[in-house]
Structures are given as C-alpha cells and as structure tokens.
Write a protein that binds this DNA or RNA. Structure first.
Lengths: 348, 348
DNA sequence: TATGTTCCTGGGAGCGCTCCCAGAGAGCGC
DNA sequence: GCGCTCTCTGGGAGCGCTCCCAGGAACATA
C-alpha cells in the first residue's frame, strides 16, 4: 500500500539513496536514471513519508498560526478570517503546511501549548491578537522556537509585523478636522492591545495638530465587536459629537446602528470613520470612510520572516511596520469622495 | 537541548521503555517509578517527538481541513469562519492537531494535493464547500485516506454531515405563505452545490403546500456573496415580489441594501427571510428572520466521525443530517416575533 | 602499466519512538 | 527445595528517511 524509497528504487532498478537524491535534487545522478526514477514516482503517485523526513531533518515543514483564547467570540470580526487566509496563502506559497491553533479557553491554551512547542510538530509559529502581558508570549519568548507576531508587542526585541496604527488614526483625526468637525469622539479599540494604544495616541496627536483636544466624555472603548461599538456609541450620543472615529470597521457598524436608532444622520449629524478596510465598510449605509490596512501583506511578511528565521538566513529581531491608507467614502461627509476604491487587499 | 525518552529515563533512573510506558499509560509500571518519571517529565517540560512517534505508529495525530479554491473571494461569508472555528474546537477537544488547507487556485490544489494525502501528514481530512463534480472529491474517494464532507455530496456512499437544507427552505416558504404573502421570490444559492439544490426544492415544495408556485421571473441565483444578493435582488424588484427568501444571510444583506436603495420597506413592501443564522442577521435593519443552521454541531460531528473512521471504530459510509430552526425576527413581518433568540450555536 | 581524478552509485548508521520478547525478582503452593 | 505464575523492567529491532563514506567505472595523465 504505502510505498517507500526502497520500493521506488526497486521499481526503477536503483537504490534508496539514488531515489532520495533525485527527489531532493542534490548530489549527482545521471540523466537517464533521473528520468527513470521520476517516471516511477509519477506513475506510482509516491510522495515521501513526512514523519520519517522530519525525524531525520529535525524540520517538519509545518508552521503554526496561533490565535489565543480571547478571540473566540470576537471571531465575528472578519479581520481574523483575512489573517488566516493571508497566512495560509503565504504558507502555501512557501511550500509549508499550516497548522491552526485556535484556543477556545485559557485551560486549552495551557494544555495544548507544550505539545505544540516542544514536540517538533511545527518549525515556527505566527502569533496574533496578543494582549499586553500575554502568558503565551512570555513562554514563547523564553523558548527557542522561532516565532513572529502580527501586531507590535509591548516589549522590544521580538519579531513582529505591524501596520501603522498611529498614522492611520492620525490621518482619520486630521481628515475629520479638515472637514470642519470639532466635537470629535472616539470609539476606542481595547487599550489592552498595542493597536488600541497606538490608535488612541495617533488620534489624539492628529486632533492636536488641528488644535482640537479629545473631550473625555466623547471617548468610550470597545473590544472590536459590533455590539461594543453599538453600546459605546450610545454612551457618546448624549454628549453630541459631530464626528466619531471607531477603532474598527466592525465597531463602526455598531455605531452606525446606534446612530440610526437615535435618528441621527450620517454624515450630516455625525461623521464616521472606521479602521480596517473590510468589505462590510463598502456596502454599509452609507459606505464607510475607513483606514485600510494591508492584512494580506502583513500576513505574507510574517510568513516570510518566520521562514527566514527557521532556515537561519536571518537572526536578529526583525520588525516591520506597513503603511495604511485613508479610504474616503460617504460616512465622513467629504464633499467629493476621491474614489480610491479597490479590492480586498491593500498592497499587491 | 532537545530531550529524548532515553534522557528522561537516565534522569529518572529507568529505561527508555519504561518512560514510554508511563507516557502512554500502558503496560505495568510500579507506582513509585511512575511518579518519579512523571516528575522528571514535568520538570524538564519534555514532550515526545511527534515525528518519531508518527513514524512508528503510522498516525500523525493531525487532521486536515480542506477548503477548495472557489471559496477564495467568498471568504467574506462568515460561514466559513464558523466552520473553521467549529472544526478547530472539536479537534482540540479530540486531542488532534488541525492543519488548514485553503487552496487559492486550482493549480495550487493540484500541486499540493498529493503531498497532503500520500505523505502521511494527516490521518484524515474534512472537506467543505465541494461543488458538483469536484475533482478533489473524486480523487479522495479513490484513495484510502479517511475523509468526511461537510455538506451532502451528489454521489452516495461517502461520509458526510449536512444540515437539513430542504426542511429549512420549506419552513421559510410556508412561513411566508402563512403571513399572507403570495408573490414570493427566491434569491437562490448556487445550484452547483447540493445546498443550493436542496434549498431550491424545499422552497418550491413549501410553496406548493400553500398552493403557491414559484414564478420564474421571481427567481435569481447568486453565489452566497453580499454582492450577488444585491444584484439578484435588483433583478427581482421590477417584478414586484412581496416576499423573498435568500439563499444565505449574506445574500439577504445584499438584498436588504438593494431594497433600501429602491425605497422599498422591509417587511412592509417585501418580507425577507435569510438562511444561516449569522450574527449579522441579528443586527441588520430590520433584524433578519432566518433559518439557523447548527454550524458548530456540524463541525463537531464531522470531526467525531472522522476520528472514528481513523481509529477504525466504524467503517461503513456514515451520514448525518442535522435539523435547522426558523428564527423569527422583524424582516418577515410576523406580527409578534416569538423571540427564540440565542447565541451563535444551534445545538449544544 | 600505474596513478590520479571525476562522476556516479549503494549501503551502513542513526534520527526518537513503539512494540515485542526475554529475564529478573517476588510470592505462592506443593 | 522446586516449579509455577505474575509483575515489572530493559534492550533489540525496525518504522522510512537523510547523510556520509566507500568503492566501481571511466577517463586522463605520468
């Protein structure tokens, strides 16, 4: 049933070693033998046993994508679907296999973690959605398994790929200012994440350049979810903001719902800007002005960096910050949306 | 650096074999030795090498989740995120690792397939979103790797878990009839899928029990996407439906957008029913009446069946059809929504 | 003819584990 | 004392692969 190198060799009239050389394209093999072996492999549909390979090479050809437990309910946010898709695409591209570790509970995280890291199942790991002081992060950092974070960690010296949250929030703030808005509120992303912190400070700094300060009553934080955007917006409405920047498109959708229920018109009464560049932002009523982040490129770079760490091509801590882009639609009330539309992905 | 059974044995003053027996909980080992070995394992953080294990046992402890290329752009549909989440949860639960194969192109599918199936990387596979005549399906069927489909295949004799698409569509149809609607249209799911076919025939049969027939001009098919729901709805509007059943919640969202743009009120002018039970259906304006399908339970059963196929506990083709549930909200115009709300998951 | 040199090939060793078998020791009855 | 059973333990073999080394063949050079 299951063939081995030995079998292929027998069928091609050569030895195990020669077949191995043909498969791995190394050493010198005469042209006719190479052709003959290739033909046998093709016709039998043979592919070498992954376990045996990885036992001797100490490499599994598998990378792990870890999404910690917190994200469970938060999975409704299409951001993670896009991350998974991007990492998967990049992994396929690199010839590696992707294992997905979606932890449902902290206990599960605790329980499954050692297996993942010390059993040699994966050659390296990409970690998303870490929060400040994440135990997973410190354990990984003290181990020897290569890993790359998506999203800046709070501590230095780790490998990560991030998007320029600060600049995106700054752009959103100045854009709203330039449109003449002054009571500009914030539906903040959680400040337990660096993304939340960076977006907050970028937003505050952006307002400052226009001589506006963030009124504390015009700030309510959420957790990226639609529901949290809805309730946060409800808290802001009594304080009469004329513009709001939401920490994610999903939160902006919740805000939109709250505003509609209160009879407020977007953008006439309240201008709204989101963050992410999700597809939902394209079809909302009205279409949402947002900060588009290149999720695909982020995922791709994370995989590329991880792979070069695994092969040892690079060593030192690597970090990259990809730029984001303001996409003007109708929800901000800009006079003429310079239709910079596009597909799902940022860069390509 | 990397410990082996031999090392653990040396530290505990016993042999490789005894350590193996302790780890696998088999054979007889005296109590004190067992405790001593466990303590060494705990303190060293040792976990046995997965490759060596799987080389000898011919089992990798990994299952694959395959999502074919077509789904690429379609990933915006939260359905797949829920499937991934469900399969992951069930897999963690069963103590297996999940590998994700998200094929981006047919070429990739072609290229990667053999490695997945013949290299022993995975013990079995769960396959979603197959279309009629899927080449992947026939290849899997002719191989010996255990696999389970999510969604009924067109051919018999395969293992699958499905939801009762027929009954769901039938319920939607009779519900709309009972509310007095007569010009009931269909935004069909693709008929290249059995889900699309089943929903179509259930819908037609449901109408028939009320003495209504589906006017061909009141039917336009889509591909599960928001955009396709939008354009399909636009095609129906000139023919004045007073109710519409959409093939998915995401398509219903598109329909909602098209209706709003035409100035038609939901449910006053057009009643709308979706299919899936997504979170978006809860927060749409108006909240969407839908057929809730138990995605989580479907994924869980698929994993359970796959695992019992792998261990050989069962053999014959197994198929299960899980029931769905009508969730009445406002979009259908029912007088008093019997608030059968709930969380994300159907059964639990 | 003897000696390198280069190209190609085969087989041994070993990766870390599980399985199997043999043997040591304890306990028991005759 | 002897044989028997039963419990516990250690070591050999081998899973399928890669790596290394030795050696044969072919050819050029001294």
């Amino acid at each position: 049933m299951n063939l081995t190198l030995e079998d292929i060799g027998r069928l091609a009239g050569v030895s195990r070693s020669t077949v191995s050389r043909v498969i791995n394209d190394q050493g010198s093999v005469s042209e006719d033998v190479r052709v003959r072996v290739r033909e046998v492999i093709r016709s039998t549909g043979f592919s070498p046993n992954a376990a045996a390979r990885s036992l001797v090479s100490n490499k599994s050809g598998v990378i792990g994508l870890v999404i910690p437990s917190r994200v469970r309910d938060l999975f409704e946010d299409p951001y993670f679907a896009k991350v998974i898709q991007g990492v998967s695409a990049a992994s396929n591209n690199a010839g590696t296999t992707l294992s997905l570790f979606l932890f449902q509970t902290e206990a599960e995280e605790e329980h499954l973690y050692p297996r993942v890291v010390t059993s040699g199942l994966v050659d390296g790991v990409i970690l998303t959605a870490t929060r400040m002081g994440d135990p997973l992060l410190s354990r990984l950092a003290s181990g020897s398994l290569p890993f790359v974070l998506i999203g800046r960690p709070e501590t230095d010296g780790l490998n990560y790929v991030d998007v320029d949250n600060y600049d995106g929030a700054r752009q959103a703030a100045t854009h709203l200012c330039e449109l003449g808005r002054r009571r500009i509120g914030l539906l903040g992303a959680p400040t337990s994440t660096t993304a939340g912190l960076d977006r907050l400070s970028g937003f505050v700094d952006g307002l400052a350049t226009c001589g506006v300060t963030l009124d504390p009553v015009l700030r309510a934080d959420g957790d990226f979810s639609e529901e949290s955007g809805y309730t946060a917006m409800q808290r802001l409405i009594p304080h009469l903001p004329d513009a709001v920047f939401a920490g994610s498109d999903t939160m902006a959708m919740g805000a939109l719902r709250a505003l509609r229920e209160s009879g407020l018109k977007v953008p006439h009464d309240v201008a709204l800007v989101g963050f992410d560049g999700s597809t939902a932002a394209e079809t909302s009523i009205p279409p949402l002005t947002t900060i588009r982040q290149p999720v695909d490129a982020t995922a791709r770079r994370a995989v590329e960096i991880l792979n070069s760490l695994i092969t040892g091509d690079v060593s030192g801590p690597i970090s990259e910050t990809l730029s984001v882009e303001l996409v003007v639609r109708e929800s901000c009330g800009a006079p003429e949306p310079h239709h910079a539309e596009g597909g799902l992905t940022g860069a390509r």
